[in-house]
Write a protein that binds this DNA or RNA. Structure first.
Lengths: 285, 285
DNA sequence: TGGGATTTGTTCGTATGTATG
DNA sequence: ACATACATACGAACAAATCCC
């Protein structure tokens, strides 16, 4: 034995998935694999071997099994292209020219909506303190929102402001659990005289935590990855006045930055369909 | 039965990993878990249940099992912070000030080296053609390199140039399997008169393919993720003249962008140690 | 509404293969 | 050649969620 029979089964199933075998569950439902018992007889192997093949495909993000229901083929939507450098600051010809961007992130032909902010007072972590240029034990206002794109979960966003902005500075709206209609940056400019002259972004990619899994409907597969972007906004004299952490599922998002002069067609509609091919083929051993 | 015994075992093992139980294999080697047979008697369960717990930890990227050797705790190195906006173009106070940046990516206190380029003539994919502004069937020069940081595998990089640059334009060095000492962009400026006035970056995060797994020593776990950045360089009149695809493991890299005026201390040494805490805790159901 | 059938999840037992030292 | 240790494979039983009549 021991000739990796489970891998043969998995590879064959993957081929059949690609070929479009396996019909939809009900009308319009997800595509569904035959039950394990049927696969067992089809491949003439034990149920455990079938399950190893299915586990493998599940870890790769191709299928998902649900107790009592069956094993389903995972549908991955077309990615959304998000431009993170399209703010008013953007130098170059594209800066400030039209309505096709929002403040922090620009998408095309989609409608972002957001939940009511959940406002909390927190003590900053070490990392946030460093970015915000405050003492390690300082209190900050955190404003957390769930962002939807065309009513689908799209990102989780938390902004942090020094608590003094609201208490001593007069920017009391920061403590209210409402959207700030004119935008928080503009509001801080009005009340505190802050003017954003630059920002710094840090980008991570990692596996989602349990909250993120729930909100984005992600699983444990290697394809279930999130971006975590941390943006620090700076005013004159290098004063940090806002920090925003945003989490977005990597399978349905691509991030974009434009620096200097970039053709407007690229700025406005970055990237075509992603023709899947490995860019770095090192065939040699 | 069926009370998720394997999960209890996995959670306990994870706690013990965090507590620093489990000694090193040999002196200075990796930390090693006891063999499955020992865990089996320790937890008073079957070997299969132990294996399910270990499979779970392996999928999460905490351990790796090797046939004939044992099961080892995975060591994740401190991440490297890479600044992708620190080129000569970079406006703001940090632009062009010192030696702390290289052309496309800046890192601190580390020594990047690269392999001899592997040069190929290829027909562009649909996506590359769109970015490079060439016809779908055009031939391009691809120059592929493996980049090391302090002699550790760090990134895989492939640059594409229209073949005409080398054939009709006189930039024949593009076809030679040597490094271009002065840098490809400067070389194209000298020979073809190209001047980079801007660039566009697209960022993906995904599971590594087999080549990338081999080069970076990655596995199948959900923690084994790579960034794929696609940079298109533009000259005057929006002419694209280079496209570079770079792949880097996400567990040991953080990407950074600076836009506008950013304090130099942030530009030079972005981010402190990543105090692990979820930024978006939605404790509610 | 209920209850049986379906289907995946969990756990155990056992045997053998394969890589390492 | 032998012991150790993980990998693969088969068989079996029961649990838990869902489906369907």
């Amino acid at each position: 034995m021991a000739a990796r029979r489970w891998r043969e089964v998995a590879d064959d199933l993957l081929k059949r998935i690609g070929d479009g075998d396996f019909p939809r569950d009900k009308d319009g439902g997800r595509r569904k694999l035959p039950p394990e018992s049927e696969l067992q007889s089809h491949y003439e192997t034990s149920r455990n071997t079938i399950r190893e093949a299915l586990d493998f495909l599940a870890n790769r993000g191709h299928v998902v099994s649900e107790q009592g229901k069956g094993t389903f083929i995972v549908f991955r939507p077309e990615p959304v292209h998000v431009t993170l450098s399209a703010t008013e600051l953007g130098v170059g010809p594209g800066g400030g020219e039209g309505q096709w961007y929002k403040r922090d992130a620009a998408v095309q032909n989609r409608e972002p909506t957001s939940s009511v902010p959940r406002v909390e007072i927190q003590v900053v972590s070490e990392q946030l303190a460093w970015y915000l240029q405050v003492e390690p034990a300082t209190q900050v206002v955190s404003r957390h929102q769930q962002i939807y794109l065309d009513d689908e979960p799209w990102s989780l966003q938390t902004s942090y402001y020094p608590l003094d902005f609201a208490l001593k500075g007069g920017a009391s709206k920061l403590l209210e659990a409402h959207d700030i209609p004119e935008g928080a940056v503009k509001y801080l400019g009005k009340t505190l005289g802050y003017k954003e002259v630059g920002y710094h972004d840090e980008i991570r990619a990692r596996a989602p935590d349990d909250n993120e899994k729930r909100f984005f409907a992600l699983g444990d597969s290697a394809a279930d990855v999130v971006f975590e972007t941390t943006r620090t906004a700076y005013g004159v004299e290098g004063k940090a006045f806002r920090l925003t952490v945003t989490v977005w599922p990597a399978d349905r998002n691509r991030l974009h930055y434009n620096v200097g002069e970039v053709p407007t067609r690229v700025m406005k509609a970055p990237s075509r369909r992603s023709s899947r091919r490995s860019p770095n083929g090192d065939e040699g051993t």
